[in-house]
Amino acid sequence: MLLDPFLDYAFMRRALVGCLALSLAAPPLGVFLVLRRLSLIGDALGHAILPGVALGAMVGGLSLVAMSVGGVLAGLAIVVAAGLASRGTGLREDASLAGFYLVALALGVVLVSMSGSGVDLLDLLFGAALGVDDGALLFMASVTTVTLVALALMWRPLVAETFDPGFLRHAGGGGAAWHLAFLALVVLNLVAAFHALGTLMAVGLMMLPATGARFWSGSVGGQVVAAVLAASAASVAGLLVSFHADLPTGPAIVLAAGAIWALGLAAGPQGSLLRRWARRPHLAG
């Protein structure tokens, strides 16, 4: 039950490798989103790439390159537009993104309906992990490589900008540039995840392991490791459940990630419900 699906079927092996590649790169970005209290921005950007993907499909058909380029450009356009709107009006960046992503999501659905390109809206929204081909797999691996190299290069300024943005700004460290580079990595990973999990489910593999990681470690590095391990476990479990129970793959993976998150919330070693409950008699005494 555990090994035969991956040994016997090439499409299961491709889905596994693709999801594991996503699990290496997306959760660390999610950890920083959580630490910056920007958790919902990942969800907003996941929706924002839909019109770009739809336009790419209208121009290039079911082309990996066209849909990926369209998704990246749409996500970056939303990031820049939301940043300009927040700086020009004083509106919080997350509130500005909320407005832009809702418009983008609706526009994307309309474009898909009008395109007549043979693109299945359900596949765009919820993904088709078992249909990942070699081109999509290479794209995911490339995005993972770029993300890990970029994180290694920008780790220290990214941590500094996360915990004390004022210091980096006054020290001439280019805090705004690091923030934009970080959001660009988020967009790139969401576009890569879209090919397996769809625009609605892509953010699940990024944010659920990241939000649960705080229950397993108190350090940034520890949370990154915990998030990657949780996402990898969720990928394997979700693929197996999807195969044996004949369930949609993207939602199965996200539900597995949700189960691991719930486990950490209930009984993790750092601030979980169990730990807080165990401390009450001691504090009362």
Rank of each mutant, 00 (worst) to 15 (best):
G222H: 10
A226G: 08
P165K: 11
V143P: 00
L229S: 09
F6C: 06
P269M: 13
A95C: 06
A25I: 04
F215H: 12
F215P: 02
R36H: 05
S115A: 15
V225G: 12
A85M: 13
T211G: 09
G108N: 12
S232K: 06
C19D: 02
L263V: 15
I78K: 08
M67W: 05
L148S: 06
L55T: 03
R276I: 01
V241I: 15
F167P: 00
L111E: 07
D43M: 01
T199I: 12
F139D: 06
L247H: 08
L138S: 12
A284I: 05
P248F: 15
G108C: 09
L29Q: 07
V228R: 08
G83M: 08
T249Q: 07
V241G: 04
A227I: 14
M114W: 13
L130C: 09
Y101T: 06
L229T: 10
G258S: 15
G75V: 05
P5A: 11
F6E: 03
V143E: 04
P251A: 15
L16E: 08
G83W: 05
A54V: 03
A81Q: 06
D4Q: 14
C19E: 04
V146Q: 08
W178V: 13
A230W: 04
H179K: 11
G56W: 00
V254N: 09
D164F: 12
F215M: 13
A202F: 07
V149A: 15
D246I: 12
R87D: 08
G172A: 09
T249A: 15
E161A: 14
I260S: 09
A141W: 09
T249D: 10
V109S: 09
S142V: 13
I49L: 02
Y9V: 04
